[in-house]
Design a protein around this nucleic acid. Structure first.
Lengths: 205, 205
DNA sequence: AGAATTTTTAACCAAATAGTTAAATATATT
DNA sequence: AATATATTTAACTATTTGGTTAAAAATTCT
């Protein structure tokens, strides 16, 4: 993203927080302005409209989602270490930005063609196609009989589903199991271990 | 729910569709009225306010979520059949009402005390505490050495996470893997099998 | 049949919210 | 120093949206 002025960056960061926490429909331009510590008119001076600001934020956050996946992949590792590294790193990165995935999934529900185009553009960039890389790594491991025969894409969905559930369902888990501290590092560490153990025990030859 | 007039039922059903697809903030009273085929003033005549209508809908939908879990549990089965039945039935029920879980998780994010109270009231009813029943069943199986030692609650989170990911991430899966028909029965059947196989292989002694 | 009550509607109001504007201020350029 | 441009603001406008109302119509009751 090209150089932004300090005010633009403040707006961008405030908008990101408000959009992620409230969704597009729940976000108020007045709230974004207050969060940024500026007059509301400046939002339109720099970004023209709520829709443009939102599209801007959505695109940057999708890039972060892709980067989180990308940074969790190390194709040089053997499959067991690969999956271990992927799960542990991915959950760590989700933990640092726990609301963005749910924001993305929620916004992707709407028949907003702009959002769909942004998403497709970012994920279809061949350099940034982490889901495909993970699927290919799994398929290769199956071919080399390092793991049992299975549908690679479904394994990917299963891994991602378990990892993100931790953060998406945090309010529900907290209500049903108040003794579990979903924000604590120990809970997160246990999640990682339970997920990896289930995965590895479930697919090893 | 006590007897409703035909108009009230039409309003309720329309409101459910609009709230579930758009969320509370994205739902418009005018849209609900149009969907119900009535004048907007009737919404207020019967339900007093958007907030009351929303709370009513949220409560009924949470009851459905609880019922879906409840109907997927059969404690008389051995652990392997229990998990198989739970996963297959739960996914079937999610498939029939694929948007409600994401609606619930999204709305549970907001610091809306009314929503939290509704949720807690429904899930804490001892008769309807499906998550606890699943956890207890798993703990008993561990104790009886029917499955390996693990944290029962985390296994529950893993199962639920994989099942609901199918529907929550449908727009994303469709974009990344267009050849996968996420609405097709064959995809759903494969999801069930892959999830169960991963689970059982991952926890059997 | 007439009265009472309930249901429904078109029209309207009040509040919320995105967006705009004229002017002031700050910064950059000549 | 003067001018041009960029940034910022208070105040405002336009539109959206939840909610209200008076009256008509339908239904129920006596």
């Amino acid at each position: 993203m090209e150089h932004l002025s300090e005010t633009e960056q403040k707006i961008y960061q405030a908008a990101t927080r408000v959009f992620i926490h409230h969704g597009r429909d729940g976000a108020r331009m007045e709230d974004i302005a207050k969060e940024a510590g500026i007059n509301k008119a400046l939002l339109h001076y720099y970004f023209r409209s709520k829709e443009k600001l939102y599209a801007n934020v959505f695109e940057q956050e999708i890039r972060k989602v892709v980067m989180d996946l990308f940074q969790s992949i190390n194709l040089e590792l053997d499959i067991q270490t690969f999956l271990h590294t992927f799960i542990f790193t991915y959950i760590d990165r989700l933990h640092q930005n726990p609301f963005v995935v749910q924001f993305m999934l929620w916004e992707m529900r709407s028949p907003n063609t702009l959002i769909r185009e942004i998403f497709q553009k970012i994920f279809s960039d061949d350099q940034y196609s982490p889901p495909q890389k993970v699927v290919q790594k799994i398929q290769q491991a199956i071919k080399n009989r390092k793991i049992r025969k299975l549908e690679a894409r479904h394994l990917l969905f299963n891994i991602i589903g378990m990892c993100i559930y931790t953060f998406i369902a945090a309010p529900v888990i907290t209500t049903l199991f108040p003794e579990l501290k979903v924000q604590d590092k120990s809970f997160i560490t246990q999640r990682k271990n339970e997920i990896f153990n289930l995965i590895w025990n479930g697919i090893k030859p």
